[in-house]
């Protein structure tokens, strides 16, 4: 089984951390994974994108043309990357900041959820990436919440470990949306 995922948003939404987290959790589960940060010249405020491939076999290309899944956190990302999701795939869209304006070109499933509002409800808009992680893990059934929780300890710098309980709450909030 191979899952490929494209994540995009603006800088500060935790796109790269989200990609890191999912790939690391996959590694902890004994799978293979690649995380490829596409990065711009600006450090903040610009577009942030990354590609994650998770596989039971060797990961071939870490670069994906048409991903099976996309997590799109703002309007610009939605407009640019939704048409790239391959037929039969699905996308998680942050409806707090983006709506589908263009006619859909391929048969894909779009899951539009107010991720920023959910994050605010947990306590901080910056938790939007963790809410998305919970949703993605549960919907794709690729990763357990336990391994995501373990991965959090690895990908967050030590100084941010005090935020782990809040991060875990955001993960669970996301996952609960799918379970119900």
């Amino acid at each position: 089984m191979t899952l490929d995922l494209f994540i995009a948003g603006f800088g500060g939404q935790g796109v790269l951390l989200l990609g890191n987290l999912l790939a690391y959790a996959a590694i902890l589960e004994g799978k293979n994974a690649s995380y490829f940060p596409a990065y711009g010249v600006e450090k903040r405020g610009g577009a942030a994108t990354c590609t994650v491939v998770i596989s039971d076999d060797e990961v071939a290309s870490p670069v994906v043309g048409r991903p099976g899944c996309a997590i799109l956190l703002n309007q610009a990302s939605l407009d640019k990357y939704l048409p790239r999701v391959r037929p039969g795939g699905w996308a998680l869209v942050n409806s707090s900041l983006a709506e589908e304006n263009l006619p859909r070109v391929a048969p894909i499933e779009v899951l539009a959820l107010p991720l920023t509002e959910l994050a605010l409800d947990v306590g901080d808009a910056r938790l939007v990436n963790l809410v998305a992680a919970g949703i993605w893990a549960r919907k794709s059934q690729a990763l357990t919440l336990a391994s995501l929780e373990s991965a959090l300890r690895k990908v967050l710098p030590e100084r941010n470990h005090r935020f782990i309980p809040l991060n875990v709450e955001a993960l669970k909030r996301g996952a609960a949306l799918i379970a119900s």
Binding site: N20, A23, I27, N32, A33, S34, Y35, F36, P37, Y39, V59, P62, V63
Partner: peptide, 8 residues
């Protein structure tokens, strides 16, 4: 890409 990507 090889320099910036992460893998096991």
């Amino acid at each position: 890409v090889i320099g910036q990507m992460k893998e096991a």
